[in-house]
């Protein structure tokens, strides 16, 4: 087992572990906003790491076999990961805003300045 393989396995393991933490948080947390914390942060991070494994694999195979298909694979995986990170943050904000507008309050909450501001 070479160093590159260990790196790829490590990236895959980190990605799967954080994805599972996100899903466990989705099942365990008490209300919409805290669930959103778990899903946006953890699944974005996990998916970035599984894509990173693909990028490392593509670069390594490109360097060892000089086949440009693998470089294309790495570039496209990088684009997909970038799209994912960007769109997840924006859609989390959109859903949080919509949930608050539709009258779902954070229920355990020590303070709610948005409801006080009445926007």
């Amino acid at each position: 087992m070479t160093a590159v393989e260990i790196l790829i396995y490590a990236c895959l393991a980190i990605g799967v572990v954080f994805n599972s933490l996100g899903v466990i948080g989705l099942l365990r947390f008490p209300d919409v906003y805290t669930r959103m914390h778990a899903t946006t942060k953890a699944t974005t991070f996990g998916s970035i790491f599984t894509s990173l494994a693909v990028i490392v694999y593509g670069f390594f195979m490109f360097l060892s076999q000089a086949d440009s298909q693998y470089l294309i694979l790495a570039i496209h995986a990088f684009l997909a990961a970038a799209c994912l990170a960007f769109t997840n943050a924006v859609s989390a904000h959109a859903i949080a805003r919509a949930a608050h507008r539709s009258g779902i309050m954070p229920t355990p909450a020590v303070v709610d300045r948005l409801a006080e501001a009445k926007l």
């Binding site: 933490l21 365990r28 947390f29 914390h37 953890a42 954070p106 909450a109 709610d112 300045r113």
Partner: peptide, 14 residues
């Protein structure tokens, strides 16, 4: 987030 998911120590608010 991993720490909070496992221990459930939360004190949320806006």
């Amino acid at each position: 987030v991993a720490y909070r998911v496992i221990t459930m120590k939360i004190r949320p608010g806006i």
